[in-house]
Amino acid sequence: MSEVGFETLRAPQLEGFGNFADVLRDEAFWDSLGFSLRFGTLTAVLEVALGLFLAVFLAPILQRHAWLLAILTLPMMVAPAMMGLMYRLVLHEFVGPVPHYLLAWFGTSPAFLAPGNVFWTVVVIEVLQWTPFTLLLFHLAYGSISGEIREAARMDGAKGWWMFRRVEFPMMLPTFGVALAIRFIDGVRVFDNIYVLTGAGAGGSTMSLPIYIYTSFFRGGNIGAALAASVLFALASFLILALAWRFAQRRPA
């Protein structure tokens, strides 16, 4: 790795593993890693739980009116950066509809992007956008369970919650794992919507790992350190995926 900035882009100086050491000593790197892991875990769990609930709860309606699925999955069609921009307007105290109606109806409105609320605001925005994805996966998985299996379970006296817990959910478990993994990966690497909405946040309060890499690269002009952080991120991702894959391989046994 090299000592390199924009001015020396074409004439970098090799400096061993100094950039890695710098990154590992940087408190902001660990803070951003912590933010990404918290954000990724929380959003993945909420999206999967909500998606599963909606897929099962709405199954009878979606079976009769499949076109409703197209409407429910619309948020996925919006580019994340546009989602961030949209919420900058929607949540603005003076021009946004949400604070406007809250003020009109209740006489008060929370400051959605104030330091105490901003983490939960970006979590909710992410969950609202990507729960349709898990809904879609669970809808397909739920619909693919054979009617004969359900019928056999009913013959054995299974119904309601017991049927779901003992028969349907175990059959959706692979989908559950895939949905959780995909949403966790997407959550950890979140960038666009948060960056457009709050940037790195006050004091770096909404700085995910990709935002840390971006700001180090462009804003700090510290290309070597940014690339070192990217390599560490890639290695950590590889490690997590390898462990997940190994876990998945062992499950059938």
Partner: peptide, 22 residues
């Protein structure tokens, strides 16, 4: 050459103080 990076640094630290995180 690093003026923009100085402003960036100040933005992070000063907003951290205003937000109460440092």
């Amino acid at each position: 050459a690093n003026a923009l990076s100085v402003y960036e640094l100040q933005a992070k630290e000063f907003t951290g103080y205003w937000a109460g995180s440092e």
